[in-house]
């Protein structure tokens, strides 16, 4: 049927879905006096005098970034060698591995947290109560996403031939890993890392019920005293996650051309948010991407 009708439908649904985001932007631009608009709330975040009231929020951001990096490292270190080994030596176990990695979708986080509470009693005794320990639980929640990202790349590459060639030429397994396997799977690894970061930055359930502080629990807490700051940070976090996922899409389509995208996506959805002073989001973007 007509292309115009389908485009019209997309435009209507798109506008409706844009409304809450526009409302968020509008909310942050309301001036404190109660009428008119201004950048006061955005400026307040940079104001050193008010830094103390946002300390919680900045701690949450820092914790979430730490967790994102540690979780990504943990998942990649555990999952990549396992998936490569299974696909090369035990192809029949692939279905088992897939099943294990999909289980966290079936078990809601709110259920998992019931069992994680006693496990964390042990973890805290053994490894201390550091922020990073939460990454052990997050690794499980990102397994389905990371597995799918790596699996797509793994099944599309002829890793068996490449590793055999390298082995025939006398390369040791560590050398094969660093010079053949990791470069071959770089798109899958990058996609898995990005999606892990996006999941970890959005996680609330486990952190809040284990009484940890991360970005989302800090947002909920701050929203009670200063809803403007909470909404500003929520917008920035959404924008950051969107950028990460857009990059994953680009990495995926870049496959055919055989190159990695050189710069982050130029399209930004909420231009209002992107143009405003954004102390936190741009820094992690450049840190995580480059």
């Amino acid at each position: 049927m007509s292309v115009a009708l389908r485009r019209l439908l997309l435009a209507v649904v798109g506008l409706v879905f844009l409304l809450p985001i526009v409302a968020m932007v509008e909310f942050t631009l309301r001036s404190p006096s109660g009428s008119g608009y201004g950048l006061d709330h955005w400026a307040a975040i940079l104001d050193p005098e008010r830094e103390r009231s946002y300390r919680n929020l900045f701690e949450g951001v820092a914790n979430s970034l730490t967790l994102a990096v540690v979780t990504a490292a943990l998942v990649l270190v555990l999952l990549v060698p396992t998936m490569v080994l299974v696909s090369l030596r035990y192809p029949r176990l692939m279905r088992v591995l897939e099943f294990v990695c999909i289980v966290p979708i079936t078990v809601p986080a709110i259920v998992l947290v019931v069992g994680l509470a006693p496990v964390y009693g042990v973890v805290v005794r053994v490894a201390g109560g550091g922020t990073w320990t939460l990454a052990l639980a997050y690794g499980v929640t990102v397994l389905p996403f990371a597995f799918r990202a790596l699996q797509t790349d793994l099944s599309a590459s002829n890793l068996a031939t490449l590793t055999e060639a390298a082995r025939t030429l006398g390369a040791s397994w560590p050398r094969v890993m660093t010079t053949v396997i990791v470069p071959t799977l770089r798109r899958g690894i990058l996609a898995a890392a990005f999606i892990t970061v996006a999941v970890v930055l959005g996680e609330y359930t486990i952190a809040s019920l284990l009484n940890r502080v991360n970005l989302q629990t800090a947002l909920v807490q701050v929203s009670r005293s200063d809803p403007y700051a909470a909404v500003i940070f929520a917008l920035l976090a959404l924008l950051f996650a969107f950028t990460l996922l857009l990059l994953i899409g680009r990495v995926g389509t870049a496959r055919s051309r055989g190159v990695l995208p050189a710069s982050p996506g130029s399209v930004s959805p909420a231009s209002g948010a992107a143009a405003s002073p954004a102390p936190v989001a741009p820094a992690p973007t450049s840190k995580a991407v480059r």
Binding site: L10, G14, F17, P20, I21, A23, M24, E26, F27, F145, A198, V199, L201, G202, E203, Y204, T205, Q216, L219, V220, S223, P227, A230, V231, A234, L235, A237, L238, A241, F242, L245, L246, I248, G249, R250, T253, V267, P269
Partner: peptide
């Protein structure tokens, strides 16, 4: 690709932030 990315963000990583979106 923009629609795909937006869908992923809203479907999987929104959580608390979507609650804020509707409060505003």
């Amino acid at each position: 690709s923009v629609i795909d990315s937006v869908s992923s963000v809203l479907a999987q990583f929104g959580g608390v932030m979507l609650a804020f979106a509707f409060i505003t």
